[in-house]
Computed example of a mutant assay.
Amino acid sequence: MIYKFEYHKLQRSHRPSYSILSIVLYLFFILFGFYTYAQTETGGQVTFRYTFENRSYFNGLTFALYAFYFAVMMVLPIFAATEGGAQIAGETSKRTLYLMLARPLSRSRIFFSKLLVSFLYLFILVGFLLSFALTIGLILVGWGTLNLYPGVLQMTHVHQSLTQNQALIAFTYAWILATISLSAPLAMSFYLSTWIRNPLNAVSTSIAIYLILYVMSEIHFFAKLRPYFFTSYMGFWREVFRENILWDRVFEDASCILMFTFAFLALAHRQFRLREEI
């Protein structure tokens, strides 16, 4: 019953609608960026289908992968931080948490019901973005062989070539693994929302901390500190886009992400159970 209640509250919050609208707008800008890049680099001599340096490289799968990569690292963590920060802190700010605690429900049950609904929402959101990006790529460009070269996505040091079927299987793996990677910023925002009682402050603090850690994990000056940032492991899903997947490395980085996630959730659960409501 409590899970159904949380689901209906999420629907009434309009956050899913705003998130979907933001994803559509994001993919539009990515699409526009690919097109203008082609026009600028070639003086208008190529069509959208041949955006990059050679005609055999770019297709709808490449577009989807680029869009998905930047979304998982920069866009979706903001949605995760927003969702987690708006949960406990949002209920506290609207004073609806007091009504929930007045019912014969344990704090643990309330906490984990919110967590489960938030995680499922994030899983669906990641799937929507990926499926929509693949659909756009299929309609406007067409699928084919997915070729990866050393470059901006930092996915490989040597050329990787995946057939269409291999690429689609890799995207399915990426959907699941990317959701796991986003569980860390979601858990961090849950923890902050148990301390910060204003949802705007909880969300803005979560986003700020994520962006700071992400930037630091990408700068070589902080190489010795990277193992202590969960953002350093969030790109582990990229390993599935290889001809021969190194599953040991995938499981190792996934374990690190889950370790951070469980640590944040344990701290959040403890704080939520012990804190006094005013």
Rank of each mutant, 00 (worst) to 15 (best):
L274D: 12
F52E: 06
R270K: 14
V152T: 15
G151V: 10
R275G: 11
L153P: 10
R12D: 03
F222G: 05
R109H: 10
Y50D: 03
Y37Q: 01
S131M: 15
L27E: 01
C256T: 10
L65H: 14
S17Y: 15
S93H: 12
L125Y: 06
N59R: 07
E252W: 05
Q87T: 12
Q164G: 08
K224M: 01
H157G: 09
T205M: 07
L61E: 05
V24P: 14
F63D: 01
F251C: 07
W143K: 09
Q11P: 00
E83G: 00
A178P: 11
T172D: 02
Y26F: 14
I180E: 00
M216N: 01
F241W: 13
P185A: 11
L246V: 10
F260I: 08
V117F: 02
F28K: 13
Y69L: 04
Y37D: 00
Y57C: 03
E252H: 11
Y228V: 04
F52K: 13
R226I: 00
L101Q: 15
L65D: 04
T179A: 08
L99K: 05
T156G: 00
M73W: 02
F236T: 14
K94W: 04
S217C: 01
F123Q: 07
L213R: 02
E53C: 00
L162D: 06
Q271R: 12
H269Y: 14
F190D: 12
L258H: 08
S181L: 01
F70G: 14
R275T: 15
P199E: 03
L130E: 11
G235I: 11
L200E: 01
G85N: 12
S17V: 14
P16D: 03
L65R: 14
G127E: 04
A133H: 13
M74V: 11
V240L: 07
V75A: 09
T172P: 04
R107L: 02
V141T: 08
S113F: 00
T231N: 02
N244Y: 11
Y50N: 09
A187H: 07
I176S: 09
M188Y: 12
V250N: 05
G137R: 12
S113C: 13
L115C: 13
L186R: 15
L76G: 06
A174D: 03
E218R: 09
A184N: 06
L76R: 13
I23F: 02
T194G: 11
A174V: 07
I278W: 10
I219L: 09
F63Y: 12
T205P: 03
V24M: 05
F68I: 14
T231L: 01
A167R: 10
L125N: 08
L267M: 10
V126F: 03
M74A: 08
L211Y: 09
H14M: 10
T261M: 00
